[in-house]
């Protein structure tokens, strides 16, 4: 019961945060909305029995990504910009989104959905996770490290002020 109450509270918060991101005209408040959404989603991860991913979520998204985004917005001077692309595109977007949502809804009510099965305590433990990363998922892990190296060098290359 408490679980359900917490779930709905957190889900509500995530949803409000997402709406704030998309519809609030002030960019700083929009980013804070996104931060709220990511923290709530992190709580959901904890509730899904993968606590350390919830922690990562808060560190990586709510921490790193949001801080970088805020930094750029503040460095630029926050200018107001709401959802305002052009009427045609806005109408099309809403129509497409509504259709997409209806489609998702149709699919989900037709799905065979059961309650979450019980899992033992070891599920989602950091030991099991680390083991999977260095054994079964060793190759993707190495590929990800290459990708992060590329991102690091790329960020330097793209933003250094003068060349040579």
């Amino acid at each position: 019961m408490t679980f359900a109450v917490v779930f709905f509270a957190v889900a509500f918060l995530a949803f409000i945060g997402a709406l704030t991101l998309v519809f609030h005209r002030h960019p700083v408040i929009a980013v804070l909305g996104m931060a709220a959404a990511t923290v709530s989603i992190g709580v959901l991860y904890v509730m899904l029995h993968v606590p350390f991913l919830g922690l990562f979520q808060m560190i990586v998204y709510a921490g790193a990504v949001m801080v970088i985004a805020l930094y750029v917005i503040m460095a630029l001077g926050p200018e107001e910009s709401g959802p305002q692309v052009g009427t045609v595109q806005t109408v099309l977007t809403y129509a497409a989104s509504l259709l997409f949502l209806l489609q998702l809804y149709r699919v989900l009510i037709k799905s065979e959905i059961g309650p979450m099965p019980a899992v033992d305590e070891a599920f989602g433990s950091i030991q099991a996770f680390g083991g999977a990363l260095v054994s079964r998922y060793a190759v993707p892990f190495e590929l990800a490290s290459l990708l992060l190296l590329g991102a690091m060098v790329g960020a330097v290359v793209l933003s250094r002020r003068q060349w040579q």
């Binding site: 190759v139 590929l143 990800a144 990708l147 290359v157 060349w163």
Partner: peptide, 22 residues
Amino acid sequence: ITFYLGLETMSLSFYVLAGFLR
């Protein structure tokens, strides 16, 4: 997973490469 990571490694390099003539 490898499908996704391969795709993103390629795309990420392309994003950087596209901006090389700053």
